[in-house]
Design a protein around this nucleic acid. Structure first.
Lengths: 189, 189
DNA sequence: TTGACTGGTGAACACTTGTTCACCTATACT
DNA sequence: AGTATAGGTGAACAAGTGTTCACCAGTCAA
């Protein structure tokens, strides 16, 4: 009878992509007084489900966008009852630092298979981030086509190395165009 | 002089986690009339940067939370100027279908290395999703500890198979507790 | 029984909301 | 010349915003 209130507000946020106002909360949960909604909200704030900003407007607590991070696989998954999980993580924020210069690319081929990047995976790449370091994974142009490889730099020698024994390193004949540096990998099953 | 307006509103959303009101937009971009903000907003709506809901309130267009999906690695990265990218993707929504039963676990060890899951990766797991299928990757309890393995089911025979030649399959002696099914993998560089 | 909470109603407040209309430039194009 | 047109100001509107105060019905413990 109380978690129900919470869930209604959360699902309002999920569908409307914004927080409800107090009158909207009234209608949402069936109160007849705006103040009842006001008190309900304050309780949700104390619980950390939701936050208010400087103007009192509701903003979603981090937790709504985030997913519980439970720890190591070895530790297993705690029982449903003890929901005292402190650590949560926003996948978006974890993977993407600079939203304006980040892009997703779909992986074709198996040239990075030993790095754990398989065909069909998506890689998050960041553009304009200066010179890559040795062993960074980069998107580079060679012979008019684009590939993903390790960026290798030993002294003045610069080349591209696949993560697959079956392929040979690529020593660029002309200039080596680096389009972006790979910052993350995501795979869906 | 106009993209600057757009960026100010977007960064307001990024920092405040909600859309500004019209008066807030005024102060944000330096207008002296609320109506100027109103017209600006309507232009942004036509551009698809932002949307209005039934009550006229602003809600972020999908694009703000999403990241451009450019296509295959082979296709490379389009030049910065031609920003006509239609396809965008929300990493969160892509990976997480049921937010309430999804959790993140950190991977230890190399037992799934041939599946491209390395130590330090995070896996997104979903709980309570019924019986796993053959070759699903699961979090299971064996001998009092938890591991991640392939769930194998051949007729009545059920066992756990690692994705690493150096390890042997595990044939459960007693009951096999499946805690969750792995739905995704994320890795940050 | 008394008294303290808890959770709700109802009304009031100053302010912000989204929206509309009339007016005022500039600049660009015939 | 004139005349559109894009982009801004200013004022007004009803409705919703967050917040506060007074009040009231139950439940719980002393």
């Amino acid at each position: 009878m109380f978690d129900s209130y919470k869930n209604k507000i959360i699902s309002f946020y999920r569908t409307h992509k914004r927080m409800p106002g107090y009158q909207e909360i009234m209608n949402l949960v069936g109160f007849k007084s705006k103040n009842a909604a006001y008190k309900l909200v304050n309780k949700l704030v104390e619980m950390g489900v939701v936050t208010k900003d400087a103007k009192g407007k509701l903003i979603p607590a981090d937790r709504l966008d985030e997913i519980p991070l439970l720890g190591l696989v070895e530790a297993g998954i705690p029982s449903a009852t003890e929901e005292e999980l402190t650590d949560t993580l926003s996948i978006d924020d974890y993977l993407v630092k600079h939203k304006d210069s980040s892009y997703l690319l779909e992986v074709k081929g198996d040239s990075m298979i030993e790095e754990g990047i398989k065909e069909g995976d998506l890689v998050i790449v960041e553009r304009n981030k200066g010179e890559p370091k040795d062993m960074d994974i980069v998107i580079a142009e060679v012979d008019g086509g684009w590939t993903m490889k390790y960026y290798r730099k030993k002294g003045t020698l610069v080349y591209l190395q696949p993560a697959n024994k079956n392929y040979k390193p690529i020593y660029p004949t002309e200039e080596l165009k680096i389009a972006a540096i790979v910052k993350g990998v995501i795979r869906k099953y």
